Computed example of a mutant assay.
Amino acid sequence: MTNTVPEKSGFWSRPSLWKLLSVIVAYLAFYLAVGQVTSRVFADQIDTDNVVASASSIIFGVALPIAIGAIALLIFATKLGWLRDIFGPQPIRGRGWMWIGPIIVVAAIAAHLVGTDWSEWSTGEIVSLIALGVCVGLAEELLTRGIAVKMLRDAGHRERFVAVVSSLLFALMHTVNFIAGMELATVLGTVVYTFGFGMCMYLTMRVTGTIWAAIVLHGLTDPTTILSSGGLDTSVTTEVSGAAAIASLLTVLLIAFGVVAIFLIRGRVGEDQPTHVTA
């Protein structure tokens, strides 16, 4: 009995990339399993042809499995005593150029809002999409900018490695959309986009000093993108006019900036940490 807790604590106190991969895989398996259960239990509420066709379909078909996944991640982080590190102040701050990341994301959110045909959506659907955004923002940021970043930092990696690997894992997580029936071309486009978006979320966390900023921006991005594009599997880059064209341009810019940022990120937690802003 006396050796059980220290042994378990010791395993997670020595983080590594393979342990992080096991967490990601376990979460995805859990999420997919929960999705299968909820899709059967609430089958009469879900539109399988267009999951965002109604408020109930959005909640039970998309938001609920993600919400349950977020709760599981919170329990996992709480059991390990990681919540303070994840939701507290960042141990390393960012340079001024990193503000470009969140600025692009905010601009894209604004363009999506302007480009939305609001007459196509009911109040219930809009509220449900906002709830979906809250679930997605919390679950995905907690896993990739919270747990993943903490484990990579605790393993002693430099911030460039932390940013790239956490963003790459975030992007690769979206390949499960193929299992859900999304077209391969759309999945591949989503993976490319989400890598750039992940880099921008990492930079948002660094430059604001908190994961909460990334959670909020992520939570606003998904619902506004769906509202603007009209569905989960509709690429925003196919839109060509007005605010939609601006959103598409910002999407390309976001991806390009995410790649450029790889070569600009420096530093390591605990190394050369003066009192002023550092890289």
Rank of each mutant, 00 (worst) to 15 (best):
N3E: 15
V5Y: 09
P6D: 13
K8S: 13
G10C: 01
F11K: 04
R14L: 04
K19F: 14
K19R: 15
S22K: 00
S22F: 02
I24S: 09
A29Q: 02
A29F: 12
F30I: 03
Q36M: 15
V37N: 05
S39D: 12
F42L: 06
F42R: 15
F42C: 06
Q45I: 00
Q45E: 15
D47L: 00
N50K: 08
V51F: 03
V52A: 10
S54Q: 12
S54D: 10
S56V: 01
I58K: 04
I59C: 04
I59Q: 04
F60W: 11
G61M: 04
A67N: 07
A67Q: 14
A72T: 10
L74K: 07
I75P: 02
F76E: 04
A77Q: 07
A77F: 05
T78C: 10
L80W: 02
L80R: 15
G81C: 01
I86K: 02
F87I: 08
F87V: 13
G88R: 07
P89A: 14
P91L: 02
G96H: 11
G96A: 14
P102I: 00
V106F: 04
A107H: 07
A110L: 13
A110E: 02
H112W: 09
T116S: 14
T116K: 09
D117P: 03
W118I: 03
W121R: 01
G124S: 01
I126W: 03
L129Y: 11
I130T: 05
G137F: 04
L138A: 12
A139S: 13
A139K: 10
A139N: 12
L142P: 12
L143S: 11
T144E: 07
G146Y: 14
I147D: 11
K150F: 01
K150H: 07
G156D: 13
E159W: 06
L169F: 13
F170D: 00
A171Q: 08
L172R: 07
F178S: 03
F178A: 07
I179F: 09
I179E: 09
T186V: 14
V187R: 08
G189M: 05
T190R: 07
T194M: 07
T194A: 08
F197W: 03
F197D: 00
T204H: 05
T204R: 06
M205N: 14
M205Y: 09
R206G: 11
V207P: 07
T208D: 06
T208C: 01
I211F: 11
A213T: 08
A213S: 13
I215E: 02
V216Y: 12
G219M: 00
L220Q: 13
T221W: 11
D222F: 06
I226W: 08
L227T: 02
L227A: 02
G230K: 05
G231R: 10
S235V: 03
E239K: 15
E239W: 01
E239R: 09
G242Q: 04
I246Q: 11
I246A: 14
S248W: 12
T251Q: 04
V252C: 01
V252D: 02
L253D: 04
L253K: 06
L254F: 02
L254D: 09
G258H: 07
V259Q: 12
I262P: 00
F263D: 05
I265W: 08
I265V: 09
I265P: 00
R268P: 10
V269F: 01
G270S: 05
D272Q: 01
Q273N: 12
P274F: 00
P274Y: 01
T275D: 10
V277P: 13
V277F: 13
A279N: 15
